[in-house]
Design a protein around this nucleic acid. Structure first.
Lengths: 238, 238
DNA sequence: CCCGATCGGTACGCTAGCGGACCGATAACA
DNA sequence: TGTTATCGGTCCGCTAGCGTACCGATCGGG
């Protein structure tokens, strides 16, 4: 809700955990931007021009796949940064970064981030720890995709979204969910129906509402817990 | 074959690409060790004591999963380093690192690597680029697990092993392959049989032999190419 | 050289999920 | 207000792969 005013404290967790002096110096070089639904922040294989500290909304990471196909392998919300390849010394993106839930971000040029990383200050350290948590997330998703059924996987994904949206009403269509999980649209309809029947969520056109968060957590596979812990281990979280 | 003699040039690609001065300084602090079949280099969630520059052999990365289950989400051979969490500032491992093909490595203490990373020299830059290639590998595996069939996935995996073993005779049992892919053992037997029928590989007890590498590449999904390119984009490769 | 352990080929019934299609309900827009 | 696009519920036949089990072949150690 509260957009950070001028010289205010940002919503982004990476920025929040910086020492105030570093943070203020950095904020001066960050540009607030809107994140529109379906906006592409960077394309797989293409150069990265800006990196985005997410303030609100959710960005999905999609690797290259056959024409017309897509599967999400990780997602970033207000806890993190989009454009990690730059922090690792790469100029191009490994995945496509696609805005799934609109929001806001503070962005800086790739060039400026390279300079920050070379500095080696607290921001660089925080970003590298965030890289690690994204790796953990993607590794767990890889295993989950191989071993777990549709309902468990979808439940895990809904929980990950819920953590980052922080509202019970989540603007998600079955079609969007199916594309993120790499499954049939009608499969998602069935799975949501199952969660609905046990009272964990309710469904209306274009919206999934979380009714029973503990119930959802019970329905998800252990992968959710592993990912959550990897994310919370970040400095300043918890 | 040729084990690097004293002051010789290491097999490891990360070390090879260092400027000779840096490399020699580093080698003095590296300890050669054998990698035994099924040896665990680090356990998921546990502290990392040493990091390993692989000289020969292959190490699999396995995230936490239900009791008795396992799926590989990435693998490292003589092109890389095992223990990346340390390079990112973490003290514990995200995945279990398990030796699948025995070999050799040069290892250093986690503490020493932390010092190297703080230095910010060419080794640090090379390692961060390697982190990026491992992320790309794992992201692609995640998508591949979600979308592609058993034969395509197994073929991709065999090619990745072949790249790193560099010999056509690969010491792999169906049971091992099935555990890495997270599928049935008898499913692997069928899939290998299919590759055998088209003359791409031959099979004998405990050994899979690559007969027709182009044929294998044709049978794999595009994920193999994506992963390969991400690996080759490392400095000094190609 | 024999015994026990490992390895791989095969067979069975079963089911989760696929691909595709149809259609009414709902929302957005002209 | 009427039209058009999107969204979701449902149904069809189909198949890849599962879990399990059995058994002969092969290998290594005593």
């Amino acid at each position: 809700m509260a957009t950070s005013g001028p010289a205010g404290i940002p919503e982004n967790l990476l920025l929040r955990t910086l020492p105030p002096a570093d943070r203020d110096a950095l904020l001066a070089r960050l540009e607030p931007v809107e994140l529109a639904f379906r906006q592409i922040l960077h394309e797989a294989g293409a150069p990265i021009t800006h990196v985005y500290f997410i303030e609100a909304g959710i960005v999905s990471h999609l690797p290259q796949l056959e024409e017309g196909q897509a599967v999400e392998v990780g997602l970033t919300g207000p806890e993190g940064l989009v454009g990690l390849d730059v922090a690792l010394g790469g100029g191009t993106a490994v995945t496509r970064a696609l805005v799934q839930v609109p929001g806001r971000a503070l962005r800086m040029t790739a060039e400026a981030l390279r300079a920050e990383m070379a500095n080696g200050g607290p921001l660089a350290a925080a970003i590298l720890l965030f890289v690690r948590s994204m790796y953990a997330q993607t590794a767990q998703v890889a295993a989950c995709n191989a071993r777990h059924g549709l309902i468990e996987r979808m439940t895990r994904w809904l929980l990950m979204m819920h953590d980052r949206i922080r509202e019970n009403r989540m603007p998600l269509t079955h079609d969007l969910i199916s594309k993120m999980l790499g499954v049939r649209r009608s499969g998602v309809t069935l799975a949501i129906g199952a969660l609905n029947k046990v009272g964990a969520v309710s469904q209306s056109r274009g919206t999934v509402t979380v009714l029973d968060r503990p119930g959802l957590e019970a329905a998800a596979c252990g992968c959710y817990g592993v990912i959550r812990r990897a994310t919370e281990r970040l400095p300043g979280a918890s």
